[in-house]
Computed example of a mutant assay.
Amino acid sequence: MNLCPLSPLLFEPLVRAALVEDLGRAGDLTTDAIVPPDLRATTVLAARQSGVVAGLDIAALAFRMLEPGIGLVVERPDGSPVEPGSVIATLSGSARALLTGERTALNFLCHLSGIATATAAVVSAISEYKAHIVCTRKTTPGLRALEKYAVRAGGGSNHRFGLDDAVLIKDNHVAIAGGILPALERARAAAGHMVKVELEVDTLAQLEEALAFGVDAVLLDNMTPDELRQAVAMVNGRALTEASGRVTAATAPAIAASGVDLISIGWLTHSAPALDIGLDYQS
């Protein structure tokens, strides 16, 4: 997998804020009382269940913000599958930094690995079809860049990152504009030549109206597999087709079999369960 790493500029402020939240005004009372300041230790990040890793650089930064000299040897880089007991990475250095940064590091690593794991499961379920799994803007406030990175680590792709990188006309836009045609006309007139326009449709009649005007992509919302097949035939390559609505690993294959280009899933980022990963003391 050719997974481009996240720039630290995107996550350094988040890790710093998380550490400040945890350390409060007095620091780690437990560790500072028990562990000598010059004690060194070695720990491993180990998987407790099967999944896919994402967020190692972010976890490492949580330790290194406390002690820049913390050493990291990666065994399973982001995007790698793991089984229970798999060693993901070995950390060595200040015992105080390792203990104090543990929870912040694991909060990020377990959450992002959970997203990567959930994504990988759906990607695997539709592997025989051409459709790509994409995430949405249903992300944890402040963590969007990280969560969308985790989707990529799991083999998925990203939908738009925000309101400013594409036009997506949804049902409320259409209702307020007074119909599909005026909504499309206003959007196309305002959008720059580099901005794509996508329209959400609930029926094949709406799709026909959108195709008559011309759009870059259509979001086929909550359609049955049979309706999706009809929609793909109507589009006939004139626009990207995206299926959305209550998609799971179990329902995704039937949706992908319809021939759609994309399947968007919100729960990958807003509800994926964390992957159980622990920090184990070695010496």
Rank of each mutant, 00 (worst) to 15 (best):
I126M: 08
I133N: 03
C135Q: 12
R137K: 13
R137A: 01
T139S: 01
T139Y: 02
T140N: 09
T140V: 13
P141D: 11
P141R: 11
P141K: 15
G142D: 09
R144C: 03
A145H: 15
A145G: 07
E147G: 00
E147A: 04
Y149D: 02
A150K: 05
R152F: 07
A153W: 01
A153D: 05
G156W: 11
G156E: 09
S157T: 04
N158K: 09
N158M: 08
H159Q: 06
R160T: 14
F161Q: 12
L163C: 12
D164G: 14
V167R: 07
I169F: 05
K170A: 07
D171P: 07
D171N: 13
N172S: 03
N172Y: 03
N172E: 00
H173T: 11
H173L: 11
A175C: 10
A177R: 07
A177Q: 04
G179C: 09
G179Q: 06
I180M: 06
L184I: 08
L184Q: 02
L184P: 02
E185F: 08
A187F: 12
A187H: 09
A187V: 06
R188E: 05
A189I: 01
A190K: 13
A191H: 10
A191Y: 12
A191F: 11
G192D: 05
H193G: 07
M194T: 15
V195Y: 08
V195E: 10
V197F: 00
V197W: 08
V197Y: 07
L199T: 03
D202H: 15
D202K: 14
L207W: 08
L207I: 02
L207V: 08
L207S: 10
E208R: 11
E208T: 11
E209A: 15
E209V: 15
E209P: 08
A210Y: 00
A210L: 00
A210V: 06
A212K: 12
A212W: 07
V215D: 04
V215A: 01
D216G: 07
A217R: 15
L220M: 11
N222C: 05
N222V: 08
M223F: 00
M223L: 08
M223G: 00
M223D: 02
T224E: 10
T224P: 03
P225E: 03
P225A: 08
D226T: 09
E227K: 13
E227T: 13
A231P: 01
A231V: 01
V232A: 00
A233E: 13
M234H: 12
M234K: 14
R238L: 05
A239V: 10
A239C: 14
T241Y: 00
E242D: 00
E242S: 03
E242Q: 06
E242P: 05
